[in-house]
């Protein structure tokens, strides 16, 4: 399942997608949970009883601002969450 967390508003689309099929059998030991400097990721059991990672509810409507620290307008490095996720389950839409 592809779970998209985020929103679209007048300034653009801000979604973090998590491919839960890759996430279930995480080979990276859920490294995303600690890699995000804002601690935006958390582990949960989804509706189909699989343990997966999701974005915490309090961050879902503020992604443009909460992710801004990792996305400077110039000299942007690889995102910590995507780097930590070796199964490549995490994607950002912007």
């Amino acid at each position: 399942m592809i779970a998209n967390y985020g929103y679209k508003d007048g300034s653009g689309e801000y979604y973090i997608s998590i491919d839960t099929d890759k996430c279930i059998s995480c080979e990276a030991g859920r490294a995303c949970l600690t890699a995000c400097p804002k601690g935006m990721f958390e582990s949960m059991v989804d509706d189909y009883d699989d343990e997966v990672v999701c974005i915490k509810a309090e961050f879902r409507r503020n992604l443009a601002y909460d992710c801004a620290g990792c996305k400077p307008s110039t000299g942007r490095a690889a995102l910590p969450c995507m780097t930590a996720c070796t199964p490549a389950a995490i994607k950002h839409s912007w």
């Binding site: 399942m1 592809i2 779970a3 998209n4 985020g6 929103y7 679209k8 508003d9 979604y15 509706d47 189909y48 409507r61």
Partner: peptide, 12 residues
């Protein structure tokens, strides 16, 4: 009826 992809907009 099992979800394979979803997105939700509840900000607006």
């Amino acid at each position: 009826g099992k979800v394979t992809n979803f997105l939700m907009n509840d900000k607006c």
